[in-house]
């Protein structure tokens, strides 16, 4: 940073510098205040808890003494998000590649616009669409899965309304598709022309160009796009609360109803929570916060390691 003396700094410079410095400090102070508040409330709840906070399969936080645990919520949050990622990332990369390298220019603009539009739909609309339209449609698919893969236990299905973690995963996949697609597309579009033309000059087909230049160049971009999507999937509230049939059980089958997620549980329990119930929900929120932090940290590590190969600055 170049040092500057008072005589060369104008008033505007000083005001702006202080303003931006102040904003930065305020952000840190607010974050710290929130974290401290959450941590204090969470400790109160966890101290009073009669169950094991990590392993108990129940949520009786308003009972006296309170008895609750986050095992089911952690499982449901992670599983539904993983399903969403498995379904959404390949499709998103496909759409992004189509837009950036295959589609005619006018079509590409149109598709890009539609994908961005998907991101503007509020999550409650996805929830209502999921509950009223998607759930009845999935029964057939689940029966088929049960018929051929039911023996694994993971895809066993009992014919009840399809309001399970799998359904939530499918809905979340649709919801995070646009954000992964648009970020990935931007990264793919930035692949250096020189590299692509060099590959073409060597006689590569279009697929080989993509494989040799676009994908390696965009890899860290795809990872950060996926993490943005994962962040949304982990914290999604209303769509999950509308579609899922929650219960405090872990079901071996992904297709049978039950389970829950952190955000959904907070939305469901908050209205009738007493002071202890509220603290317990805050404690579960803190775990979600840590989970998101962990996921983002892991993503940054991966990106940092890949950076030297790709040249993309993520």
């Amino acid at each position: 940073m170049p040092s500057h003396t008072k005589s060369t700094a104008r008033l505007g410079d000083r005001v702006f510098s202080n303003l931006s410095k102040g904003s930065g400090i305020a952000l840190l102070a607010i974050m710290a205040a929130i974290a401290v508040f959450l941590a204090i409330r969470a400790v109160v709840a966890i101290r009073a808890n009669e169950g094991n906070f990590l392993t108990t399969f129940a949520w009786d936080a308003n009972a006296d003494p309170p008895y609750f645990g986050i095992a089911v919520l952690l499982f449901g949050t992670v599983v539904s998000s993983v399903i969403a990622m498995v379904l959404a990332v390949p499709v998103a990369v496909g759409i992004a590649l189509f837009i950036s390298h295959y589609a005619p220019r006018r079509l590409a603009a149109g598709i890009g616009y539609v994908v961005d539009l998907l991101a503007a739909v509020p999550s409650i609309i996805y929830g209502l669409w999921g509950a009223l339209y998607l759930v009845p449609q999935l029964t057939g698919l689940y029966e088929w899965l049960d018929q051929f893969f039911g023996w694994t236990g993971v895809f066993a299905y009992d014919g009840t309304p399809a309001r399970s973690l799998m359904t939530v995963g499918i809905l979340l996949a649709i919801m995070i598709l646009p954000i992964i697609t648009s970020v990935t597309r931007e990264v793919f579009l930035q692949t250096p022309k020189a590299n692509q033309e060099a590959a073409l000059a060597l006689g590569a087909t279009r697929w080989e160009v993509v494989r040799m230049t676009v994908l390696p160049f965009g890899r860290s971009g795809v990872i950060s796009a996926s993490m943005l999507g994962l962040g949304r999937a982990l914290g999604e509230t209303m769509a999950v609360a509308t579609v899922l049939s929650p219960s405090f059980l872990i079901n071996a089958s992904l297709l049978e109803s039950g389970g829950g997620t952190f955000a959904q549980n907070i939305a469901s329990q908050f209205k009738e929570a007493g002071s202890m119930g509220r603290d317990a929900l805050i404690a579960s929120g803190l775990v979600l916060f840590l989970l998101t932090l962990l996921v983002n940290g892991a993503a940054r590590l991966i990106i940092a390691r890949r950076k030297e190969y790709s040249g993309a600055n993520a």
Partner: peptide
């Protein structure tokens, strides 16, 4: 945000139903 969301769900479901 949660509360508003909940109101919207119930409102919308009532409308639909």
């Amino acid at each position: 945000k949660l509360r508003l969301g909940a109101v919207l769900v119930s409102g919308a479901l009532v409308l639909l139903t």
